[in-house]
Design a protein around this nucleic acid. Structure first.
Lengths: 199, 199
DNA sequence: GGAAAACTTGCCAGCTTGGCAAGATCTGCT
DNA sequence: AGCAGATCTTGCCAAGCTGGCAAGTTTTCC
């Protein structure tokens, strides 16, 4: 994947990722309020000015890696067999791309908590899912031969898939259930595919 | 509704609404980039400093009235008969609260266009729907006797309802369909309640 | 190997943010 | 009615943030 990129492009991506990870780690460790661009820049070994070249706010930096993960979902979807039912593709792809290693789990939970009680970060977080939604709409329209501008179906399916993912992620990160994230996602897709019957 | 409020409270609300409407109108008329807090304040007959007491950005101001409408949905839901199936309540409420008078239609369309190609405003717009989602979750859990922290159902139903609304609104405001907003919402709820079959 | 393109960095002018206190307005009580 | 206290509005201004610019560095491509 990185093989076809020039040195320059790889370096940019590396800097971007380093900044994003530093931002997330520092935010989780010391809270968002006390987090400064300077501290992030220092942790990633670049100048504060360079940080501002990459991101226009600390919130944007924090969310950048998740953003990348989410666009990975769209890529994964593209490489699914063309004759697989779209619903099944979505379910499979959403479930697998964000499989968290045990090690990272508590970090994700900490991140979600951070998001939940921080308006600016929440807004940023929501735009990530909106971007996911947009990508899904196009893919779904293409795969099912529907027109996203005249038919509710692509937008609806994309929105509902994103909702399944987001709801499962929310519940999992709350930690009140001991199910895995994958199980929760499967459960969510199941409920929706049966028309959300009252339990 | 305003009868039980003191003069002071009514004035605050009036100022808030005046600011929000002025912000939206000016944004639609002249674009977001050239919109300043000063202009909004002037249009609403208050000082710029007062504007900043009410809203922390022009985006927040623009979205404030929609925010109010959306919380109206939650209120409407609360006053539905307790024995009505929750799905039916949601569908009815979402459809009726945001019934746009013919007169306002083009304004809403202009607003949605503004939102679509403006990241900061989009982020703000998304938080409105997130707030709607949160309110719905609580209401649904209460009405169906489920636990929002241990059961996916409330979060999922809330997210999916919001998705139906949002998708219908998006499509309607694109103007590529000549169906009414209500029809689109009904259509969206229908499709979801049948498990989103491929058309 | 060297010219051109792209990236990083420090500097700094202009804008935004939010605290403060003085004046204006509203409330509740007598 | 009228007064004391609470709340809201407003101008001022200090502190912090933003983004353009140009000099220095690294990468690319021939």
């Amino acid at each position: 994947m990185t093989g076809e990129m020039s040195l320059r492009e790889r370096k940019k991506l590396a800097t971007r990722l380093a900044l994003s990870r530093a931002a997330l780690r520092l935010a989780v460790e010391h809270g968002l309020d006390s987090l400064t661009p300077e501290a992030i820049a220092e942790a990633a070994d670049v100048s504060p000015r360079t940080f501002r070249n990459y991101f226009s706010s600390k919130e944007e930096a924090i969310v950048a890696e998740l953003q990348q993960r989410v666009t990975d979902i769209a890529d994964a979807l593209r490489s699914r067999p063309a004759d697989e039912p779209i619903w099944q593709s979505l379910r499979a792809v959403v479930g697998t791309v964000i499989e968290p290693p045990r090690q990272e789990e508590h970090q994700i939970v900490a991140f979600m908590r951070l998001v939940k009680d921080n308006p600016a970060l929440l807004a940023q977080h929501l735009t990530v899912f909106e971007a996911m939604h947009q990508q899904l709409v196009e893919l779904i329209a293409e795969r099912t031969g529907t027109d996203a501008r005249r038919d509710l179906y692509p937008g609806l399916l994309a929105a509902v898939s994103a909702s399944c993912f987001k709801t499962a992620l929310d519940m999992w990160s709350e930690g009140c259930s001991d199910a895995t994230l994958s199980d929760l996602i499967d459960d969510a897709f199941d409920q929706v595919s049966h028309g959300l019957p009252v339990p």
